[in-house]
Write a protein that binds this DNA or RNA. Structure first.
Lengths: 264, 264
DNA sequence: GCAAAAGTGTTAGCTATACACCCATGT
DNA sequence: ACATGGGTGTATAGCTAACACTTTTGC
């Protein structure tokens, strides 16, 4: 039962011995990316299962829960220091793990999971929902194990079908939509350098409505966390647009204080 | 190991058999009240322990986590339908339960907890932090068990000393301060009917700064979730002030949409 | 009458919104 | 040349913030 040193950084070890993990608890991650004017989410699919689910994992017995979420993201996308936040705990009494239903006998055999009814693995799971915002262009999608596929799915077409994962995703979505007007969003979803139009279209996509070009620019610049660069985007059609980037310190301050910190 | 019917609505049964509970997981509640222009928090103290802690509990194996939080609040305050929200999951690898350190041998003996190192009770705990906003005047403080004391403590003097409970409380506080400018707060902390001054002083207390009387009233009324009553507070010194109350439907809408739903 | 709190009006300055116009570039 | 997206100016309506004045009440 003692955990070996350096164990495990890859999730292939996930079920090597189920008792290395904190009992009855899991993490589910909703990883958002933005590409070609659409919002994407990373979904995974296990061999032998005919549905997509949110990437998730268990937490090691001696691992911080937040660290476990970061581990999953690193394994999944190759990225460190991802923007990753808790958004909701899903603790319904009838929740089950993703690995036990349908054709999950495969897993039981392969990973030597006992069917003891009193073992935590065969009982209710509490799961913490995390959402992540990542730069689509920087992500290298990697399967956590050989019997798993990971893909970017369009938020409007490919949705997870497993258990309550659809609810978890919806909840993550409404969380970021609510946050949109409260804290700055964009640094994590856009490349380092971006044009004002790209930022605006991102907001339009998330809000689902068109925004006034002129007024958007004025407002977003008034918050003073975006720097105008001495550079333009080349090789595009029509007039070369100005490039901007986020000022990390000022952006970070606004993340903490919120955009409406001056209320009363 | 099977859970008996109707078990337990009182926390005296809490440790009757530790395996009735979801392993390695607990709830901590930060219950805020407002009285005599100060913010208060409910703390508890177990017999044989020389420190105050946040009220908390385990979750029954077949109980929704949110339901468990509501159960604690009901037992503690006598109130149903309390404003109660998740705010953060505390999952550091070195977290321990509140019942094992110091003079906790009392508990081990009394409740027949085995010292088996592999038992979840003797390992790391993940705890979900909930905060509650309650009407101080409606609360009947009740101890969860005979060997426990529960008291309202001033937020600036009496602070919990157990483990990371101070951090959890701080976190709850900064959460409600942040929310203050985003969603309406007050309905749950104030009595049914209140004066504009009482509402303003509540905000001043939470924000820690004085607010302009005239402009506060105009702004808060402009949000249109407060009804002016045909009634005045009687028996107070000086001019009788106008009474107001929250319009439940409109208030509820603003809770969901936020005060800045018109952003862009 | 006076002090204290309540109730209400005014104004200068700022922000939001809508719209207008010109510019640069690839075809 | 012209279509398309980029860059910038402006005028109006509405809101904020600061302050001032009046009213009511208990002592």
């Amino acid at each position: 039962m003692m955990k070996p040193k350096n164990f495990p950084s890859g999730a292939s070890a996930l079920l090597e011995n189920i008792d290395y993990f904190h009992p009855g608890f899991s993490i589910d991650c909703v990883v958002f990316g933005y590409h070609e004017k659409t919002l994407k989410v990373l979904l995974t699919r296990y061999q032998g299962f005919d549905f997509w689910q949110l990437p998730g994992s268990f937490v090691l017995r001696n691992e911080d829960v937040d660290a476990a979420a970061n581990r999953i993201l690193r394994e999944l996308t190759g990225l460190k220091n991802v923007y990753l936040r808790q958004f909701h705990l899903f603790g319904n009494a009838d929740r089950r793990t993703g690995l036990r239903e349908g054709s999950s006998d495969i897993f039981r055999k392969e990973y030597n999971i006992h069917m003891n009814k009193n073992h935590w693995f065969n009982n209710r799971f509490i799961t913490m929902g995390y959402y992540a915002l990542v730069d689509y262009t920087q992500v290298q999608v990697t399967s956590l194990s050989s019997n798993e596929r990971v893909e970017w799915k369009d938020i409007h077409s490919g949705l997870p079908e497993y258990a309550d994962h659809r609810i978890i995703l919806e909840d993550a979505l409404s969380t970021i939509r609510f946050q949109l007007g409260l804290i700055p969003i964009g640094r994590n979803l856009l490349p380092e350098k971006f044009t004002m139009s790209e930022l605006r279209v991102l907001y339009e996509t998330l809000l689902g409505k068109p925004l006034n070009r002129r007024n958007f620019e004025r407002k977003v610049l008034s918050y003073d966390f975006i720097d105008k660069l001495d550079e333009q985007r080349k090789g595009v059609a029509y007039k070369s647009p100005q490039l901007f980037s986020f000022n990390k310190e000022k952006y970070f301050m606004r993340e903490i204080k919120g955009l409406h910190s001056d209320w009363l």
